[in-house]
Design a protein around this nucleic acid. Structure first.
Lengths: 347, 347
DNA sequence: ATTGGCACTCAAGTGGTAGGAGTGCCAGCG
DNA sequence: CGCTGGCACTCCTACCACTTGAGTGCCAAT
């Protein structure tokens, strides 16, 4: 059983350890925190915390270090997400002002977040999966090459070049454009994908037999574009900060750099984190072991995007300043939500 | 003055040092290389090499390590670019086969190159700066939002959304489309930029006064898109490999990660390297100091793209295997040139 | 010009010691 | 019963002296 004061001791240990990066002993706790009890008493409390596996001693006679479980208790019960300074809020606001487009906004978001936290910043793109197709445009580039542009109501635009098996007249292009438009405009991305898929699989021709090969070629490309809309994407910044804190990651930052390069692992991890009632999520050390990132911690905050909620957060050493990082992620998420809601640039 | 055999000794030192990562002594040279002379003789040669600052001894009594100048002499006079194994050639060929588009091709290129060399791979995108605009398409998304698509003859497609100050009829859009098309299609990117610029700066209206505000809004967006075509771009892969060889970079890989994230430094460095008569370029250690990358070396090879030549290469520690890396870069560049020339996917 | 020999240097490893931070435990105190 | 001071104990760290081995520079001899 851990007493009330025991939890306060845990808080002190986490705070001091994060600040100093050195195991913290009973003596330094009574020095730095006004507990009003002696070091021996703190030692007794620490013994209990150690029984509960909330802290460990690296060697028989050295200070204590929080375990992952200790961080978890700290984050869940002990940490207050303290608000940012007004200077920091201003920094966010000016940094995110007047983005030229969605890509620019997302890139700025991660840059400001990495600057605020000193960690690697990650942001999920708003999902276009639940968006609807509003336009399809065909542009003949060459006799056998057609540019296919798709636009969604959530601001997503995709373009790709389709090779055509046959030559098309201007009128043919208009026919195909109209047929494809009636097939998918106003439809959700997933539904549009199904309907395009059906084009290729059914025998029933939707268009003139002469145009059928062209239609199928276009359908292929449109399927790829729709798949891209459904795919989750991530932006990142601050990978270079990892080099400074190498020893924080038990020897090697290799798995982290690997994950940053692969993206897919981080995409999964970000989407599988569970958020609390305030839209904040934390994943600590070994909790990330299934992703091969047992040495790292993640904090994230939901933000509201046209296509549904997505997440923005940071990745760093287990020994990170959770309250500050959560505060930064939350603040950035709020501004981001606001930008996406108010502003028209991204639609 | 360095003798003939002295240069052979330099070659041996470079080769052994790259292989073992340890200072190489006179004894190990006579053991590993059939020089037919004694260690004392090698020592005399090494003394000369040290006078010429081609090698140094880390401390009074340890083996020798090549200096940057030593690597330079090795690369310029001693190294033969040895051809790849057929297995490696096959790997390149299969890896680069059937790309879906230019982005995909470039991404695969750097991935195969990082795999062949174990270094960070870099590739300049083909430049669209000298390409010509072949199409401009306007798609009305909403009363005040217009999608502007530009296509070049070198395969570049760019799309962006313009905010419109006034509402346009279908007929107005057609008028503007025709006017813009006659202004820039068939023109080189830089020329098109000038002409669009002129739209905004001259008082003389090109279109009906009613449409003038819309035209200017579109011109702004088109300028941005054209600027994007002129901008050099880089793809990279293998950043994670840096974590393994941290100690190769005198302590910190931070500048390298920073450069990878910033891109702009690497873009400049890649374009400013000087190539030899075979289109190969090497930049060693302190030669990169102006870019803050004095601990790193670069090798690159030109490849032929529709818009002119561009470069593909790797970044690694000064102590890298220059001949192998040059060979790999050259081989990849050749396949890449071939793909871009033969294949239509990217046009 | 090349060689073997020799004295010399220096990094790296080894073992022993001292210091210090921190712990666990216990008896005494309020 | 919880808290406290005291004390013995552990273990990390730094320091020192010493040894070892790789490698050098120089020189006289071939």
């Amino acid at each position: 059983m851990v007493t009330e004061r025991g939890l306060e001791v845990l808080r002190a240990i986490v705070q001091d350890y994060v600040a100093t990066h050195e195991p913290v002993g009973s003596r330094s706790i009574v020095d730095r925190h006004a507990f009003g009890v002696s070091a021996a008493t703190i030692r007794n409390d620490m013994a209990q915390l150690e029984d509960e596996e909330l802290i460990v001693a690296p060697h028989t006679s050295s200070g204590r270090v929080p375990t992952d479980k200790g961080y978890r208790v700290f984050v869940n019960h002990l940490a207050k997400v303290r608000p940012l300074s007004t200077g920091q809020r201003n920094a966010i606001e000016t940094f995110l002002a007047d983005p030229t487009d969605l890509d620019d906004l997302m890139a700025r978001t991660v840059r400001v977040l990495t600057q605020l936290t000193g960690q690697v910043a990650l942001a999920q793109y708003p999902s276009f999966a639940r968006a609807s197709i509003t336009h399809i445009e065909l542009v003949a580039l060459a006799p056998h090459r057609m540019l296919v542009v798709l636009v969604t109501d959530a601001g997503g635009v995709s373009q790709r070049i389709a090779p055509l098996p046959i030559e098309l007249e201007e009128a043919d292009v208009a026919v195909l454009r109209a047929q494809l438009a009636s097939l998918i405009t106003g439809r959700a991305v997933s539904e549009a994908a199904d309907r395009v898929q059906a084009l290729s699989s059914t025998d029933r021709a939707v268009t003139a037999p002469r145009l059928q090969p062209a239609l199928l070629a276009l359908a292929d490309v449109i399927r790829e574009e729709l798949a891209e809309f459904r795919q989750e994407r991530l932006v990142m910044a601050g990978a270079a900060t990892l080099a400074r804190r190498e020893q924080d990651f038990r020897g090697s930052i290799h798995p982290l750099l690997e994950a940053i390069e692969e993206q897919v692992t981080l995409i999964r991890l970000m989407s599988e984190m569970t958020t609390d009632e305030h839209g904040l999520a934390t994943s600590i050390g070994t909790e990330n072991a299934p992703f091969g990132l047992g040495e790292a911690s993640f904090v994230a905050s939901n933000y509201a995007a046209p296509g549904g909620t997505a997440r923005v957060g940071v990745m760093g050493p287990t020994r990170m300043d959770y309250p500050s990082n959560l505060a930064a992620a939350r603040a950035v998420a709020r501004y981001l939500s606001r930008m996406l809601e108010e502003d028209g640039t991204t639609r």
